[in-house]
Design a protein around this nucleic acid. Structure first.
Lengths: 263, 263
DNA sequence: TTATTATTGTATTTTTTTGACACAATAAAA
DNA sequence: TTTTATTGTGTCAAAAAAATACAATAATAA
């Protein structure tokens, strides 16, 4: 039994000719939920291995557009924060690409139903891959597996499975990059819902920086940036003072980010 | 008259088959001299246009190694600070690549002496290029043109000629990247000679940040980092107090850089 | 109704860092 | 010996950051 339908196979065979060979794009799509940083992963049909969403670049397509296309296909979202962070060009990436059980991908491809030698050859090429990272509001995203995947799920970055190829390394690099770029990235705007409490924002920063911050000092520092608009109070039902909700003034936030937040 | 010798042409034709198609590497090699940030540029034989040193990646070569190889070939230096900063993947990069006079590169290639259709086709491919930036002690480098270039020179980044293709954009991005990464990069260690005065270091920072800094405050801040070792005084012959020479304690400097200097 | 509880918004105090400037020390020249 | 330009270091006020204090308040329990 093939894991792919005949039409899926033909569709890929046709597309393949229009891709740039040897180069791919992988997306580290990050979200924030339950006070945890999460990443969108795919589970391959063939051997159940987890990987980052990725794809190839059409010959007449800008690489950035390819990344946006992949992001859109996996989340249903577009026009999001999406930045390139690194290109992985080790020759070893390609050598003997094996699945979790050590079988060559080539064999797995046959199992999927691919028969054309050109396709088998394609997946055994050396690929240089460019990593992009996206910041996404999980509540708005609708995860969609691609045709090679059985599942598409949010997973906490602190408790990840072993990913295929060098995808763990790619993810690691994305997060380091995010930490370094923190002052130039619309973190809260991208990862939080429209309205949020000061505590939400603080917990987000703590999750990414991996260290606690003093509550009142955090609040003072953030408010001094003049990018938050105070909204109504949030009556959560808890037996204590209700916090205010805030939202970002997008214009002044983006202006600030250009210079660097200095946080 | 061909601009290339027959052996140069044959050598390239043979190498070409072993390169990964569609992908190149460009190096922004930065140095510091006469209180100015300088970049190493090549002047093409064919039309005199200036460009960044670049090259292709062998099929059995890591991309980082390709960048190191190119750097080594142009400067004679190896084991230097060399970091990837961005990959340029716009489809437009390839469209109608013209020389300064608007002639197609293809025609220029013929002028160089290339005749094989495969070679002409190669230079008209779409290339995705990965940019690396290196920080180099100019005094130690020995600029060497490649076989396509007539000259290889250090040029101040503040007074650059128009470069071929999108190389101005690549350089611009490298410098922005450098400014953002300043706290994670061994700036002084790479760009200055072993021993230097506090003024040398300050002038370097001023050149890169593009703004003056207060002398005594700069000194206090730098010394507090505990990465400088004070050496003997420099008797310059000037009619004033002689400054101390300093050198970096490489171990503690690299340790500091990992965390981020916070300067 | 009133005390209790947990958490919030803000104020206050303390400590650290920064920016601006002062000044004595000094290598060579006048 | 005086002059000159520049250096190393110190000071002082302003600003920023860290630590702490405390009243306000939404719901709950008494």
């Amino acid at each position: 039994m093939n894991l792919l339908s005949q039409s899926q196979i033909v569709a890929f065979e046709n597309k393949m000719e229009n891709f740039i060979p040897n180069h791919s794009v992988d997306c580290v799509i990050l979200g924030y939920e339950d006070q945890q940083l999460k990443v969108l992963l795919l589970k391959w049909k063939m051997h159940g291995g987890w990987c980052l969403p990725g794809g190839f670049i059409f010959k007449d397509e800008d690489m950035d557009d390819a990344a946006h296309r992949i992001l859109q296909e996996r989340t249903g979202l577009h026009q999001l924060f999406l930045n390139q962070f690194y290109t992985f060009g080790n020759q070893k990436r390609a050598e003997h690409p094996t699945d979790q059980d050590g079988r060559l991908i080539k064999e797995s491809m046959t199992q999927l139903g691919f028969t054309k030698p050109a396709v088998l050859k394609w997946f055994n090429k050396r690929f240089i891959t460019t990593g992009y990272f996206a910041l996404v509001d999980i509540a708005k995203a609708q995860p969609q597996p691609d045709f090679l995947s059985a599942a598409c799920e949010w997973r906490p970055v602190n408790a990840l499975p072993k990913l295929v190829l060098d995808h763990n390394e790619i993810l690691e690099k994305a997060i380091v990059h995010l930490r370094h770029q923190l002052n130039y990235v619309p973190l809260g705007l991208s990862l939080l819902p429209k309205k949020f409490t000061m505590q939400d924002l603080q917990k987000l920063y703590e999750a990414i920086l991996g260290k606690p911050m003093e509550r009142s000092n955090f609040q003072r520092k953030i408010l001094k940036l003049k990018v938050l608009v105070r909204r109504e109070k949030l009556m959560s039902g808890a037996a204590n003072k209700a916090p205010y909700l805030y939202s970002f003034d997008e214009n002044s936030y983006h202006r600030l980010i250009k210079e660097g937040i200095g946080f």
